[in-house]
Design a protein around this nucleic acid. Structure first.
Length: 258
DNA sequence: AAGTGAAGCAACCGCGGCGTT
DNA sequence: CAACGCCGCGGTTGCTTCACT
């Protein structure tokens, strides 16, 4: 699978990676580590751009990367993290070190988003869709939430990068990124809450319980809404607990004056 | 068995932040 | 302090595989 191979005008190779190229890249990074991506391809004997090498390494070749099907626990974690972090795939991926942001993003776009929609939830706001409009709550439709300030449109599944909403989201995400330490603290708090993610810090018993739950859920074709999300009040309480409301009140002025 | 649409996956593109000059 | 270039991120595209008719 992958894209056809072709060459840029300057001779840079694009498209699908070969086994030999993978080996060259891995061998180079094993020996010299990840350094300046600009010069890495030349030094490693690859006719690729640095950007392509970086992508290949991070998404496919780096040690510990997990491929294949997402487990129900991982899916649950993605959904929960997405409800808090929005489309900040890199931030979500940080909490799931065995998965690349690209992998998570692909799985979200191809599977989880549609599953939420099938269950009557807006994938951006994680709110129930009533009459084709997601229920709006102050929390998710005002300034703070990185994900959810995307308007719940009738065609909420389509979310073009050229839309104003997308730009707004980027601005918001950027605003949050620039306060990375706040976000890191927030994520730590999220992960320390057993309600949010099921992949960190669980003993075998908890995992087993979750597996049983997941099996039930799968057996019932995900008809239980509470598997997918919390209700508004629950989210609000949780966000207050972990200090998101405080974050919300921080200066985002620049981000919102477009 | 063939055709077709959906799903899954790998990789590219473009934008914005940030460091350097 | 402005200009420039690199890097990282999110969105999108294109190809393959799978499932259904």
């Amino acid at each position: 699978m992958g894209r056809a191979t072709w060459f840029d005008a300057d001779g840079t190779k694009r498209g699908e990676w070969t086994e030999e190229e993978d080996q060259k890249l891995v061998a180079y990074i094993d020996e010299y580590g990840v350094g300046d991506w600009r010069f890495l391809p030349g030094r490693a004997g690859l006719r690729r751009c640095g950007k392509s090498c970086r992508l290949r390494w991070l998404n496919y070749l780096r040690p510990g990367i997990k491929k294949g099907k997402f487990t129900p626990q991982e899916e649950q974690a993605i959904i929960n993290l997405h409800s808090v972090l929005g489309n900040r795939w890199a931030a979500i991926a940080q909490q799931m070190p065995n998965r690349s942001d690209n992998d998570i993003k692909n799985h979200w776009n191809s599977c989880l988003k549609k599953r939420l929609e099938r269950n009557g939830l807006d994938p951006m706001t994680h709110q129930p869709i009533i009459n084709n409009l997601a229920v709006k709550t102050p929390l998710f439709n005002t300034e703070c939430s990185s994900s959810s300030s995307a308007r719940a449109s009738p065609s909420s599944s389509s979310f073009s990068s050229s839309s104003g909403s997308a730009h707004l989201l980027n601005k918001i995400a950027t605003g949050i990124s620039s306060r990375q330490h706040c976000v890191d603290d927030m994520i730590k708090n999220i992960l320390s809450d057993p309600r949010i993610t099921s992949i960190h810090g669980q003993d075998d018993l908890e995992v087993e319980e979750l597996k049983k739950d997941d099996e039930k859920i799968i057996a019932s074709d995900y008809q239980e809404d509470d598997f997918l999300m919390w209700d508004d009040e629950k989210i609000r309480r949780f966000m207050e607990e972990i200090g998101v409301m405080e974050l919300e009140t921080m200066s985002y002025d620049g981000a919102y004056r477009l």
